[in-house]
Design a protein around this nucleic acid. Structure first.
Lengths: 210, 210
DNA sequence: GTCTATATGGCGATAGAC
DNA sequence: GTCTATCGCCATATAGAC
């Protein structure tokens, strides 16, 4: 996922992992071919088995790399003590960068997580479990505080989280459907996303105040 | 997807299509095995090829059936002239029924649509294209009317649509991640969805007024 | 139409030279 | 560590009897 920035060719193992990343994300684990990964890495198929015993092991390695780099940033952001309304901006901002560049990434994570739920638990370490609880607690505190000040009923932290994530992530999940239904070309989709980056925080904040 | 309701066994072709539906939705096209479909349909593997030439053709037939039955209802709902705020309730209501019963359906549609965008165009007939345009136009009109009355800036119809759909559909898209992060068991997830069915319309309506 | 048996090809995986 | 060559399986697909 993260491309090498320096000049020297990365070693074979790294090239394989990068290639596997690209191919698995593009085609899903079942749809990926070891041959294609080998080609893209510029090595022989046998070398994949030398470094990673089997396709399943390679897929697992890729999954760990991707899934680990996916959530923590946003989780930490949401768990922090910055004001609730700022969080909205920051979450929107944080996701839209990488997801624009990697159109298949989110669908890969979702489909593999859905079809092999064990993969999710594998990256859900005790520390992360704790962090997630803390994040929810912080969110709840902020929402209750807001409700107290505005003298309204507090919104459920879990519900708010899902609405926030859903609103942010859905365009990248349903991209082909949306571009077709809305009649958008590739660059029009970009414009749509740009506009959304500005509009969505306003919309959500409006729902929050009173 | 639609299970037979009457007593008599459906004919083999139908049974195959139903079985293929279940297996493709569960495992994705690449992950599905013809043998499993045959077993589930109670027929021999060869019969699948008798009715549908190849796996690809069978997958295509299933896709057409599912995708066709998926959008039209909601599309029609959104295009109708019922008040905007009522639409929110109805959309939420409409999706949550089937998606609760078919946990893999949405992820299947999304992943296949993403990896094979041609499949999307195949179900996007001229009539549906027209209907989609009309739906957006109606939505825009309603949002502008609302803005005029409230004396505020109108929200983009496209953006509103995506927010509405995203908020509704995301829990079913990200279910395994959410249950893990929020620490929900299967029946707690149901409760979460029930609560969401009540809360989400309120939240969205609040963002709309003023 | 539905079955049994078989062909065909592709893919993951291994052996072994260098 | 990296390659070439090859194995063995398994999934799709077909032939042909009933």
């Amino acid at each position: 996922m993260v491309k090498p920035s320096g000049q020297p060719e990365p070693d074979a193992r790294t090239r394989i992992l990068d290639a596997a990343d690209a191919v698995f994300v593009r085609h899903g684990i079942d749809g990926a071919r070891m041959q294609e990964i080998a080609n893209q890495a510029g090595v022989n198929k046998a070398l994949l088995h030398y470094y990673f015993r089997s396709k399943a092991d390679l897929a697992r390695a890729v999954w760990l790399r991707i899934a680990s780099s996916f959530a923590p940033g946003v989780l930490q952001l949401l768990a922090s003590d910055i004001p609730l309304e700022d969080k909205i901006d920051r979450v929107v901002e944080a996701y839209y960068g990488t997801l624009t560049k990697h159109p298949y990434l989110l669908v890969y994570v979702i489909s593999e997580a859905t079809r092999h739920p064990k993969l999710v638990e594998e990256i859900y370490t005790p520390e992360r479990k704790l962090a997630a609880r803390g994040m929810i607690a912080t969110l709840r505190r902020q929402l209750e505080e807001k409700a107290r000040v505005d003298n309204t009923a507090a919104i459920s932290a879990e519900q708010f989280l899902v609405t926030l994530l859903g609103s942010c992530l859905f365009p990248f999940v349903a991209r082909p459907m949306l571009t077709t239904v809305l009649g958008l070309g590739p660059d029009e989709f970009s414009k749509f996303i740009d506009k959304r980056k500005r509009d969505l925080p306003l919309f959500l904040k409006r729902a929050l105040r009173q």
